[in-house]
């Protein structure tokens, strides 16, 4: 009885350790560069509003209460290709919407942010990384392209 139990446990420990060792060795040997950019690379640090223990029945209400509802009504259609704006469009948006915005064909200018001095602030914020700043809108329709817009 003792011998059988010893063999079973020993086999478990023996092959378990062996499996762990060679699994790690294989990963080190054959798997290269298996990681993405770290959260620090993109300043992706979470500002937690709440973290607490909840009951099993509270789950849906917690999600409902704390989930952020974002109005995406003015966002571009999902099927529209993304492209850069023309200089004229950029200039137009620079004047009307200091932070830059998506130009919707239907609604004109998204005026969510409308502080007059925010453009300069935005330029300063985005001046790192070689002065990255840009703006985008979906690609013009085929007809517009043909017309040379």
């Amino acid at each position: 009885m003792i011998d059988i139990l010893s063999w079973i446990l020993a086999a478990g420990v023996g092959f378990g350790i062996s499996c762990w060792i060679f699994g790690n060795l294989l990963e080190k040997s054959n798997n290269m560069g298996d990681y993405k950019g770290d959260k620090g690379d993109y300043n992706a640090y979470v500002n937690f509003k709440v973290t607490r223990q909840i009951g099993k029945s509270e789950q849906s209400s917690f999600l409902y209460m704390h989930a952020e509802k974002i109005d995406t009504a003015n966002d571009p259609q999902g099927t529209e290709l993304v492209r850069r704006m023309t200089d004229e469009e950029r200039e137009q948006n620079k004047k009307k919407v200091p932070t830059g915005a998506f130009v919707s064909e239907a609604n004109g200018i998204n005026s969510k942010k409308s502080f007059v001095d925010e453009y300069e602030k935005w330029e300063q914020e985005t001046s790192n990384y070689g002065g990255l700043k840009g703006i985008f809108k979906p690609v013009a329709t085929e007809d517009e392209d043909r017309a040379g817009f």
Binding site: G37, N47, F48, Q53, F62
Partner: peptide, 19 residues
């Protein structure tokens, strides 16, 4: 087994996405 709720926000900056 216990359940925890957590909520918050973050700002992603200069995240490159394959186009």
């Amino acid at each position: 087994t216990r359940y925890f709720g957590s909520a918050g926000s973050m700002k992603l900056k200069n995240l490159p996405l394959d186009a």
